[in-house]
Design a protein around this nucleic acid. Structure first.
Length: 475
DNA sequence: CCCCCTTTGAAGGGT
DNA sequence: ACCCTTCAAAGGGGG
C-alpha cells in the first residue's frame, strides 16, 4: 500500500520522467551490465568509472539531477538539422527564422557566426562566406552554451537569436540572462575574447569591442585594439561544445579533463556521418573565420597562452612522462582502454556500412576525416598513439582534403581506413550493434525535438557501447 | 592567481 | 614530406 507521500513521489517522478529533460530521460540503452572497468584507484578514475556508469545506466540522473540537467541540452544543442547533409538551402533554412518565434531574423553579420567577431572591414566583403550554411550553423553552433545554462558562457552568452529562441520557447527560469547584461545588440563574440591572455601585437583590424576581463595588463589599450581572435573550432571542439553539457549532466562530472576523455571516446564512437557533420561544420567555420580575418594566422595566438607543456616527446619513454610533476597525467581512463577505444572505434568504422558519400562528399568532412577518426590517438599525449599509422590529417590536407575526398569519394570514405584496416585488422572489437545510420538521416534532417531526442538517445546508446567493448581486453 | 589536465583537429614552423 | 608545437573549449585541481 502506498502512502500519500509515496504516491506523490511517484507522481512527481513520473512527471519528471515524462516531461523532464530528455537527456535525463530513460534512454533505451542497450545496457551493459558490467562495467568491468579495471580497478580505478584514484578519485579521478573513480569519477570516470562513475561517469561511464552514468552513461551506461538508466537510473542515472533522472531525478537526481533533474534540477541541474539542463532540459534544453538535447533540444538546443546542435540542432541536427545543421548537420543534415540534406540541409535545405539557406533561403529555406529554418534557422533564419527564429525557430520559435517564427520571426524572420535578419542574418546580421554578427550573427553569422556568433563565434567570430566581425571585422569591420571584413563584414562588408563577406558576401556570403557561407551563405548557404552559415546562418544556420553559425548561430546555433556557438550560441548554445553547452554548459549552458548552468554555467552561462560569458562570451557565448547568447546572441539575439539564441536568447529569443530560448526565452521564447523555454521556460524562463532556465534561461539565464546574459551574464554581463549585454544587450542583444552588444553581442559578445566568443572568438574575440580578450581575456587573461596577453595580447600579442598581431595585425588585425577588429573593432575594439571587448575589453579584457581580467588582464590588468597595462597594455589594455593595445588589447582593445587587437582583440584576441581565437582559432576556429575544429570538429572535435565543436563536438565537445555540444556534448559537454550532456556528459556533465549525465555524469555529474565537472572536471573537463575527465569529460574530455569521455568525449574523446564518444567521438570515436560516432559514425562517419556524424563526424562528417562536425568536420563539415568545422570546415565552414574555418572558412568563415578566414573570411572574417583574412590576415589572421593561428600563429598570432602563439604565446598568448602560457607555454604549454608538451613535454611528451614522442620519443620519450612512457616512463618518462613522470616528468610532469604537477598533476601527474592522471589517466582518467585506463590507458589500455584509451588505446583500445580508438582501435575499436576504428573497427566500428569499418563496420559502418553507411557510405555517407553525401555527407562526405563535402570537401571538408571527407574521407580524410575518416582517416582521422580512425586515427584517434593523439600523438601529443600518447606516445604509443604513434604506433597507429598516421593518416594524412585532413587539416593539412585542407586543400588536399577536398582533393582526396573528391578523388576517393567514389571509393568511399571507407577506403580511407583501408590502409590501416587493411594492413592491420586491429581486431574489429567494436562492432556497432545498432546500425546507427538507420535512424540517423531522418533525425538529422529533422529539427523536431523528437528527432533530436532520438539522436540524443542514439548518442547515449553509443556511449555505452563503446565503453562496454572497451572493457574487452583487446590486448 | 595562474597553469595543468584532457581530448582531437588545425595550422604553422622547422628539418 | 614529415615531425613537432601551439592553440582552440572547459572547469576543477593544484602549486
Amino acid at each position: 500500500m502506498l502512502t500519500k507521500v509515496e504516491t506523490l513521489l511517484i507522481t512527481v517522478v513520473l512527471f519528471i520522467f515524462l516531461t523532464g529533460p530528455m537527456s535525463a530521460r530513460a534512454q533505451p540503452r542497450t545496457e551493459v551490465p558490467s562495467r568491468a572497468r579495471s580497478g580505478h584507484s584514484t578519485a579521478w578514475l573513480r569519477d570516470m568509472s562513475r561517469a561511464e556508469c552514468c552513461m551506461q545506466s538508466n537510473k542515472v540522473p533522472v531525478v537526481q539531477h533533474a534540477h541541474h540537467v539542463h532540459p534544453l541540452t538535447p533540444l538546443i544543442t546542435y540542432s541536427n538539422e545543421h548537420f543534415s547533409p540534406g540541409t535545405p538551402p539557406s533561403h529555406l533554412s529554418p534557422e533564419i527564422l527564429d525557430p520559435k518565434t517564427g520571426i524572420p531574423r535578419t542574418p546580421h553579420p554578427s550573427e553569422l557566426s556568433p563565434y567570430y567577431p566581425l571585422s569591420p572591414g571584413a563584414v562588408g566583403s563577406i558576401a556570403h562566406p557561407l551563405g548557404w550554411f552559415m546562418p544556420q550553423q553559425g548561430q546555433h553552433m556557438y550560441s548554445i552554451p553547452p554548459g549552458g545554462f548552468r554555467h552561462p558562457y560569458p562570451a557565448l552568452a547568447m546572441n539575439a537569436s539564441m536568447s529569443s529562441l530560448v526565452s521564447s520557447r523555454f521556460s524562463p527560469h532556465m534561461v539565464t540572462p546574459p551574464p554581463h547584461g549585454l544587450h542583444q545588440t552588444g553581442i559578445p563574440h566568443p572568438a574575440i575574447v580578450s581575456p587573461a591572455i596577453k595580447q600579442e601585437p598581431s595585425g588585425d583590424n577588429i573593432s575594439p569591442t571587448m575589453q579584457a576581463r581580467k588582464s590588468p595588463a597595462p597594455h589594455k589599450k593595445e588589447e582593445d585594439k587587437k582583440p584576441h581572435i581565437k582559432k576556429p573550432l575544429n570538429a572535435f571542439m565543436l563536438y565537445m561544445k555540444e556534448m559537454r553539457a550532456k556528459v556533465v549532466a549525465e555524469c555529474t562530472l565537472k572536471e573537463s579533463a575527465a569529460i574530455n576523455q569521455i568525449l574523446g571516446r564518444r567521438w570515436h564512437s560516432l559514425s562517419r556521418e556524424e563526424q562528417a557533420k562536425y568536420y563539415e561544420l568545422a570546415r565552414k567555420e574555418r572558412q568563415l573565420h578566414s573570411q572574417l580575418y583574412p590576415g589572421w594566422s593561428a600563429r598570432d595566438n602563439y604565446g598568448k597562452r602560457k607555454k604549454r607543456k608538451r613535454e611528451n616527446k614522442p620519443d620519450s619513454k612512457p616512463e618518462d612522462f613522470s616528468i610532469r610533476s604537477k598533476k601527474q597525467c592522471v589517466q582518467y581512463l585506463p590507458s589500455e582502454k584509451m588505446c583500445d577505444s580508438p582501435a575499436s572505434s576504428h573497427g566500428s568504422m569499418l563496420d559502418s556500412p553507411a557510405t555517407p558519400s553525401a555527407a562526405l562528399a563535402s570537401p571538408a568532412a571527407p574521407a580524410a576525416t575518416h582517416s582521422e577518426q580512425a586515427q584517434p590517438l593523439s600523438l601529443t599525449t600518447k606516445p604509443e598513439g604513434r604506433m597507429h599509422h598516421r593518416f594524412p590529417l585532413p587539416g593539412k590536407a585542407s586543400g588536399s582534403t577536398s582533393s582526396s575526398s573528391s578523388s576517393s569519394s567514389s571509393s568511399q570514405p571507407s577506403s580511407i581506413p583501408v590502409g590501416t584496416s587493411g594492413s592491420q585488422p586491429t581486431t574489429p572489437i567494436l562492432t556497432r550493434p545498432i546500425p546507427f545510420t538507420s535512424l540517423h538521416p531522418s533525425m538529422l534532417s529533422s529539427p523536431s525535438p523528437f528527432h533530436q531526442a532520438a539522436l540524443h538517445t542514439h548518442h547515449a546508446l553509443f556511449q555505452s557501447q563503446p565503453l562496454s567493448l572497451v572493457t574487452k581486453p583487446t590486448e
